[in-house]
Nucleic acid binder design. Structure first.
Lengths: 197, 197
DNA sequence: TTCGTTTGCTAACGAGCGTTAGCAAGTATA
DNA sequence: TATACTTGCTAACGCTCGTTAGCAAACGAA
């Protein structure tokens, strides 16, 4: 294990730096020479650790997909709990993933289109499954009378859209902690902004 | 006027085709040769009509910014109207722009980062101004007791995030018309999803 | 007819791209 | 000390990129 540890860390370091660049400039506009320079290497040296540029993107996108699914599964473990509670937990889990690594999240959200087939199709299938999970939760909530919405699919899209905008403005040193952000998002989405006096 | 009409239309045709490609592949991953082929031209011929690839992006991004500002101004013309009404009108205006040309909207939302300075900074300033306009409206609503939210800035971000996800899934031939979409978005954002029986 | 504009072509430029081959130094294990 | 692996270099490959120069056909306006 100790023999492979240095490899892993160098590889992980490449992934991290690449993720930051992919986020800032986009996948296509980031060159391997830029990435190498950022790491203090020559471009060719990168290929002692990775197979291709796209391999990095693949790892980031699918790695984050795993995290999102794991978070959702944990949030809905207690299927007897009120749907509103499960939904709140799922929102919090989602926000936790987004805030733990907002650069990787931004890449996950925007750069997946540069995956070539068949990875691209596989990725979209995963994303659809995740959206469907939220949609199903909302549908259950409507059926149980806990939630109201004219269209669960529409509500799910709006909900995820609000959450997924987070990496665009979240700063780890901002005034709101991830938990506070998750709480406010859940409140606002569940209660709306209208004041009934 | 008839002498400049063909020019305009050819240029506009290039802009439209480029916008569709920029949306589908991203600005950096779209080549001028690809664009030319799509138009039935050779790459060099494009430069009889445009000055550079970035010029197209610039026109799309700043053109849409104008449309968003015009829509907001029209929605808030009657400043004596209830804030909830103005906000609803502003949401509808925003959705109308997004649905009228969802390809250009997607480029506006995601590809502005490929503008070079100083255009990039100018663009971000415009975007900030637009966000501030929504934030101001929400603040007024909170002060007037029509809306409730712990943080107007937070609420504005969430609201725009929900709206701006629209180009990602909107289809002109879908079952919901732009007006219905705008109405539902406004309802859901103002009322939330929780059911109070 | 003449003139200017629009439109488009071919050919090429310098530059940068992702990636590979071959080599070598360092390091940990046996 | 011998072995294997990690890490990184230099040099170069074939390719694509955005863009330009120069030329030519078509066409409306005078």
């Amino acid at each position: 294990m100790s023999t492979t540890a240095p490899t892993r860390s160098r590889k992980a370091q490449i992934d991290r730096t690449a993720t930051a660049l992919f986020r800032a400039r986009g996948f296509a506009a980031t060159s391997m020479r830029e990435l190498a320079t950022e790491l203090g290497l020559e471009a060719g040296s990168l290929y002692s650790h990775i197979k291709s540029k796209e391999e990095i993107l693949h790892r980031v996108c699918f790695g984050l997909a795993d995290e999102f699914f794991a978070g959702f599964a944990a949030a809905t473990l207690d299927s007897a709990a009120p749907i509103a509670t499960q939904l709140r937990l799922a929102i919090e889990a989602h926000v936790r993933v987004l805030t733990r690594d907002s650069a990787a999240s931004a890449v996950f959200l925007h750069e997946w289109r540069h995956l070539s087939e068949p990875a691209r199709t596989e990725f979209l299938a995963l994303r659809d499954r995740y959206e469907a999970a939220f949609r199903g939760l909302i549908q259950q909530g409507i059926a149980a009378g806990e939630l109201h919405a004219p269209d669960a699919a529409f509500a799910a899209l709006t909900l995820l859209a609000s959450l997924n905008w987070l990496p665009a403005w979240y700063r780890p040193d901002g005034k709101l902690s991830p938990d506070e952000i998750a709480h406010r998002l859940a409140e606002q989405l569940l209660n709306g902004m209208r004041n009934y006096e």
